[in-house]
Design a protein around this nucleic acid. Sequence first.
DNA 1: TCTGGGGTCCTAGGACCC
DNA 2: TCTGGGGTCCTAGGACCC
Length: 407
Amino acid sequence: MTSRIILCADMDAFFASVEQQANPKLRGKPIAVIGSAARTVVVTRSYEARAFGVKTGMNIYEAKNACPHIIFVPGDNEKYTYTCGELEKIYRKYTPDIEVYSIDEAFLDITETHHLFGGPVELAEQIKQEIKERFNINCTIGIGPNILISKLVSDISKPDGLRWVKDDEVSLLLEELPVKELWGIGPKTTEKLMAMGINTCGALGRAPVSLLRSRFGIMGEHLKAMGQGRCERVISVNEADPKTIGHSMTLPKDISSIRQIEAYMLQLSDMVGSRARKHGFAGSTVRLTIRYPDFETFTKQTHLPEHTNHTQEIYRAGVQILDSIKLKDKVRLLGISLSSIERVTGQMPLFKEKAKQKALLGAVDAINDKYGEFKITWASYSAMVERPKVIAPAWRPSGVRNIKIKK
DNA sequence: TCTGGGGTCCTAGGACCC
DNA sequence: TCTGGGGTCCTAGGACCC
């Protein structure tokens, strides 16, 4: 294959920028976009907040400590998915070969089209300008011969950057670059590589493949290729079907009551089931995740005889798992996920809401069967269950990963 | 006052089989 | 003084990403 020209467009502080755009009072101020749950963390923060050392993943107390006048803004998924969809329309003016990688990031293969716009840099400038004019959001664009390099270049050019690294400039760029900058090399791999005396991408690219293979298995060859700036992965224009559909939540308080645990599991099962139903998927593996206060996290899965997307079938499978284990402590987080996914066709959409309602009632019945009548009524379930507003940066603008939780 | 939520992919080790 | 040896499949856990 001839050399490609791949562009990576990455919005700067996307959620925070959208919020500052939506509310002028937030502009120029340190803000942090957070989730709606009681025990939430900073999801994204404005550059003004970054200047104070506010980091993603900090809890609100840490963030407040770092920046006493920080403004917390609960995230609003609808604004971000809308903007993401509009961004995609902008990209489509420049090439049909687009991979919307996440809600704030996209790859564009501009090999065949850049000359129409005066070249890769000129094309990128036009995209940046168009996004700025339309949304008043800055983005950073990295251009390179493959996805790995374009992503890397955009990461190191933030904020509001634009850079094109050509094929013959890659090795110079990588020579002194720390390995942790590479997409796919996280803290653990960085630590292992450094223990081997490999600190830079240049060194990684020169390391004997036998050594890397003995330490990292089949990833060894992949790592060496990355060190040399090579990457086989190409843009995938079509979004693949999901392999899992799941929800989890850190509970407002650690709990030990089985009945309370099951009530949350019912809520999670319904969130999973309704999303699967909405997009026409069903699964035959149900997995329960439990996190204890010490952060030890336990998962156990079970298989169903048939694929399902019904709330109460998912829920019952979860309860079956719960019944099979002994809790070692109070529960901090619960998760329910559905996997072994396949597409289902027909019937469901028409009576979707009825089916959902029926499914929920069935599940409420199941709790009552177990604990005696009137422990949970439909009203008490509804009152108890406040649908969380889920903020997850890994969403895509369309398809099953665009999570809209209906009340 | 503690540490979110959505995913994908890989792997170590156990169960099981011949 | 002993404890085969492959192969496959599955599970739970973990690394990594946005």
